[in-house]
Design a protein around this nucleic acid. Structure first.
Lengths: 254, 254
DNA sequence: ACCCTCAATTAGCCTTGTCTAATTCTCAAT
DNA sequence: ATTGAGAATTAGACAAGGCTAATTGAGGGT
């Protein structure tokens, strides 16, 4: 009964055949590790234009440069990145699709964890990071449906559609650049680690919340009035918060 | 295990002092593969008393016997199995706890997929098999809570509590042993592959459904009246169905 | 132009989990 | 008691991902 013809387990990146021990090279079926590289290349590409360097990847992925170097060669062979020796890589079209797929998984998982399972907004990253590589497209789509195909995740980051295109984003400015006395709605919180998220969650600053900008100090410290009270935010933090004028964004719909 | 470290010559005490490698040894971090071995050992142990043989594991896991052999040594080192050379293994207490944890993950995931995401009852196995190794205890417990801590999964298999003890099970008999003309409620469907589940799902036979046993043929073919009509089930299938008298099991409580 | 530094790559080894081929052990049948 | 079949284990390889040490390339400063 080993017959199993369509036994697809995209799960571990091991050889899937019976006897022939034929490497799964061809297309499809990336290992979780490769997916992480692709996702990270995409992320770095997104906010620092140009090629992505070996060392930048090594930093983000917390592995050594030689490890990255050899993986980049494999990704190049798979046609997922364009590589120029000693210069770094960029994602190919196909690589970008893979990245978007993973981002879709990740953000929908985050939305699901917060909305259906009552997870704390600032505490969902690790769970989603692990799960994103193991949920099927089927499950992803069902989650999306259960949530009503949300355009953004709990941090306000846009969620690619099933066809992997981003929904239209609303216009935003940095909280650090807002006018004193202005009334704004938090739209998105950019983030890398968990520390800032924790900080903001505790301060009651999260997407959908309306703020009044009380004061912008000379060196960037921003004081805002939240529903929970007044909060002072260091500039580094204020830079991560994207807001829209509260008036223009009336209601809940966008 | 090959040449370097994994020889089990009686008097080869050290060799294990490598500095560079971070031994995840101590308890806690098992690989997904190891978890699969543990889970499978538990499953085989459950319905065929005694030690679990290398070849039985090789069959179930679809790997070769030498692969199993070397893995069993590792599991023994981790204290998860008791191993007797050439005789097979049994789970230690600790190994059993690991197994129960995985079973809890698996069955709660199955329940969640069917109840909250509208998955087809017979189609959840693969998804749960992949995910069970990657969901945290936190997530597992939240899922359990969201479902109201169900005692059984969609196949009627009992779900271990958070403390890993099984809930009390209701008394059942095999459908194949039921009296002709009797009225019964389906309690549980035992299964290994997906084929029988598909068969039964299509026949409208699933847990909670009430059946009337129309006929039990000499060689085991059982004919039942389901809400959807009359169905004839081969003996192999009827043996997988556990039922309780519909009268005795009135309501939902037991 | 020439160095010197630092990033990137190559070389070589490790650990997991898997495989095939060869060997060894067990046990039931003679 | 012996033996032979079949199960289990050992031996040796391999692919994936990782690491350290050594080497090579790219560029900026003088």
């Amino acid at each position: 009964m080993v017959a199993a013809s369509d036994d697809d387990s995209p799960d571990d990146g091991h050889t899937r055949s019976d006897k022939g021990s034929q490497p799964n090279v061809s297309t499809g079926m990336l290992s979780a590790v490769m997916e992480d590289y692709i996702k990270t290349i995409y992320a770095i590409e997104s906010d620092s234009d140009g090629r992505v360097s070996t060392s930048a990847l090594a930093d983000h992925l917390e592995v050594t440069a030689p490890t990255v170097s050899s993986m980049l060669k494999k990704l190049e062979e798979r046609g997922l990145v364009d590589r120029e020796e000693y210069k770094g890589v960029t994602l190919t079209e196909e690589g970008e699709l893979v990245a978007l797929e993973i981002i879709r998984h990740h953000r929908l998982l985050e939305a699901f964890l917060t909305e259906q399972l009552d997870y704390d907004w600032a505490d969902i990253h690790d769970e989603a990071d692990r799960l994103e590589h193991h949920v099927s497209e089927e499950l992803t789509d069902r989650i999306a449906e259960a949530l009503g195909n949300p355009p953004v995740d709990p941090h306000g980051d846009p969620i690619p559609d099933a066809d992997l295109s981003f929904p239209k984003e609303s216009e935003t400015i940095r909280l650090a650049d807002a006018d004193e006395g202005g009334r704004v709605t938090v739209r998105r919180i950019r983030h890398q680690g968990d520390a800032e998220l924790r900080y903001l969650a505790d301060a009651g600053v999260r997407p959908e919340v309306e703020l009044t900008v009380v004061d912008v100090a000379p060196f960037g410290m921003v004081t805002v009035e939240t529903p929970a009270g007044e909060q002072s935010l260091p500039e580094e933090i204020a830079q991560l918060i994207e807001v829209a004028p509260a008036a223009a964004a009336d209601g809940v719909e966008v």
